[in-house]
């Protein structure tokens, strides 16, 4: 897979993207239609009005929010290259220091913001789909909630908050939804150790102190 296939280049917009671009205009920062998937990037400050427009436009009518999730682009090779952080092959950071031969050096994060929040939209009238992305920086991982647009976003945003630590401003009940309230950190972030358990029930017995299997 070539790099240019991954980049959000303008390219040839699909028929759906033409309608979206005609409706949203300059609010679309990037767009890309690739292998039948249509995707647009918008600014996070405009997410609510963009969603309202996509939901209420009679040509688009995105009345169903299928999923809200996020992507952690930490270590994405999009800019600087400083191999000081050591990652294992599952892209979990192991330590800082020299490499061993089993490890790979992941490049430092580039100038793009670290996170992207992803909304998957579906129109139950026209059966077309759209992927909506917002870049969110690491030092201020906040975003306006879209529960006012689709009430079903409530639990989906709680899940994104739980696993990625992205705070949705104006959310009526922003609590953890999967993990225990005592959990520290957000496990789907790339800098969270993949096997860092936080047991709620204290472990005991002969098996409690067994080392975990090697990778």
């Amino acid at each position: 897979m070539h790099d240019d296939e991954n980049q959000a280049t303008p390219g040839e917009p699909s028929p759906l993207l033409r309608k979206v671009l005609a409706r949203l205009g300059q609010q679309v920062l990037e767009h890309r239609a690739w292998r039948g998937d249509d995707r647009i990037h918008v600014d996070r400050r405009q997410i609510v009005e963009v969603c309202l427009a996509l939901r209420d436009d009679p040509e688009l009518c995105f009345d169903l929010l299928v999923d809200v999730t996020a992507v952690d682009y930490m270590g994405q090779p999009d800019g600087f290259r400083r191999p000081v952080e050591i990652w294992d092959r599952n892209r979990a950071m192991v330590r800082r220091g020299p490499l061993s031969r089993h490890q790979v050096a992941m490049p430092e994060r580039g100038p793009l913001p670290r996170f992207a929040v992803v909304y998957h939209l579906l129109s139950t009238r026209f059966f077309h789909r759209l992927r909506l992305k917002c870049r969110v920086p690491e030092d201020d991982p906040t975003l306006p909630t879209v529960t006012t647009v689709w009430p079903g976003a409530n639990w989906l945003e709680r899940e994104t908050y739980d696993l990625y630590g992205i705070r949705f401003q104006g959310h009526p009940d922003l609590r953890r939804i999967y993990l225990d309230e005592s959990f520290v950190g957000h496990p789907l972030r790339k800098d969270y150790g993949k096997r860092d358990e936080q047991p709620v029930q204290p472990l005991h017995g002969p098996a409690a102190n067994e080392p975990r299997r090697p990778h």
Partner: peptide, 20 residues
């Protein structure tokens, strides 16, 4: 018995760490 394929932060790696 062992966590199975779920070798991650979320899954108990065998319930013998909790109960006999």
């Amino acid at each position: 018995s062992s966590g199975g394929p779920y070798d991650n932060y979320a899954v108990v790696q065998g319930i013998d760490r909790i109960i006999p």
